[in-house]
Every structure is written in C-alpha cells, then in structure tokens.
C-alpha cells in the first residue's frame, strides 16, 4: 500500500486516477493523517500536578495540623495554574495543523475546567467536600479523551476515576482528598506521561 501511495503521490504529471486508485488513495491518505499528540501536553500535565499536589497538601494540613487554612492549597495552586497557562499560550506560537478532534478535545477540557471550578465553589459554599464530583469530572474528560484518541492508558485512567468517585462515597471525609490525589496520579498523570512518550 505504501509503495502504491508513494508512486501516486510522487506523480508530478497531472494524470487522472482510476476510481479504484482514487478509493485506495483516499483511504490511505486519511489513515496517514496524524498529529503529534504530545506537543501540547504541558498545560494538561501541569494541571494534573497542581491538583494532585493541592489534594495531598489539603490532606496533610487537615489531618496533621490545626491550621484553619487547610483548604488554601486549592485556590493558591489554581491561581498559579491559571497564570502559568495564560503565559504558556501567549508564548507559544499557534499550531498551524489542527485536526477536528484536537479542537474538540481542547474545548471539552476547557468546559470541564469551568465545571471543576463551579463544582468546587458550589460544594465549598455549602460546606461540603467536592472530591466525589471533581473525580467524576476528571473521569468524563479522561475517559472521553482516551476513547477519542483510542489510547488505552487514558481510557483505563478514566475508568479509574469513575471507580474512585464511587469509592469516595465509602471513604470518610478525612481521606477523600488523599483518594483524590492518588486517583489523579494513577488515572491522569501516569496515562498522560505515557501519551507524551507515545509516538503517533
């Protein structure tokens, strides 16, 4: 197939293709359309680390100190993440080659990011812990991304988030942030680094 493809593609004369040749060429050209999935991984991995770190810091401060500010790691790291993300996108030149599915994934994660902030705000304002719902949001994004990219590690990561969300109902409030952090490492960061290494 590759030899046929190269033979056609190198043809500089404007000779007409037969219908059979056309169909083969279309199929092959579409299958060769791939993007470098790893090139825009930085902000995704950054947010994974920030939220996992905030979860662990929340757990330690709440469990082992008497500090009334145990919740502060989340807003502080979220603001730091927003600033760094804005700086990253301003410094980075816009990618000239974009598939429709990449655009879809960007918009999906943008909407889920807004949902994450809204869920945290709604729960905290009602003096409730948001971790069950933020795990579900992470699960939606990770599972959808894995299925769309056909990347098994992310798909499994997404399933792990859903299991963790259900499991969080059976965990005491004290250990929910710990479960949250562990779920982000195994469900998001490890699959994220595997995706970064993956050569499309």
């Amino acid at each position: 197939m590759l030899i046929i493809y190269k033979t056609f593609a190198m043809t500089t004369e404007e000779q007409a293709l037969s219908p059979q040749e056309s169909l083969r060429l279309i199929t092959d050209a579409i299958s060769r359309t791939k993007e470098d999935l790893a090139k825009n991984s930085f902000p995704f991995l950054l947010w994974g680390w920030l939220i996992a770190s905030a979860s662990f810091a929340f757990f330690v401060l709440h469990q082992y100190t008497t500090s009334p500010y145990y919740f502060l790691p989340f807003p502080v790291l979220a603001i730091a993440g927003m600033i760094r993300t804005v700086v990253y996108y301003r410094q980075r030149s816009t990618s000239a080659t974009l598939s429709y599915y990449t655009v879809f994934l960007y918009k999906l994660w943008f909407v889920l990011g807004i949902s994450f902030i809204a869920v945290v705000f709604l729960n905290v304002s009602q003096s409730k812990l948001p971790f069950t719902y933020t795990l579900l949001i992470g699960g939606i994004g990770t599972l959808a991304s894995g299925l769309i990219m056909k990347f098994d590690a992310l798909t499994i990561g997404g399933v792990l988030f859903f299991i963790a969300a259900i499991g969080s109902v059976y965990v005491t409030d004290d250990y929910k942030p710990l479960l949250h952090g562990v779920a982000i490492i195994f469900g998001y960061l490890i699959p994220g680094y595997r995706l970064k290494k993956f050569k499309a």
């Binding site: 056609f8 593609a9 007409a16 056309s22 050209a29 060769r32 000239a96 080659t97 429709y100």
Partner: peptide, 29 residues
C-alpha cells in the same frame, strides 16, 4: 483525479487546517 490534489483534499477533510510542511510530508511530493 490528480493524485496529489486528491491526497490534499482527503487530508483536509479530517483537519480543521494544515500547514504547507505537514501537507508536504503527507503527500511525499
């Protein structure tokens, strides 16, 4: 019906946009 043109259009059906270097790599021309 011209091979390179058909490859370009086939690729762009799947892409929101593509730059010259990417198309050069895909078309091998």
């Amino acid at each position: 019906t011209v091979p390179v043109r058909l490859i370009i259009v086939s690729v762009l059906v799947k892409m929101k946009q593509a730059d010259f270097l990417y198309l050069k790599e895909i078309t091998k021309t």
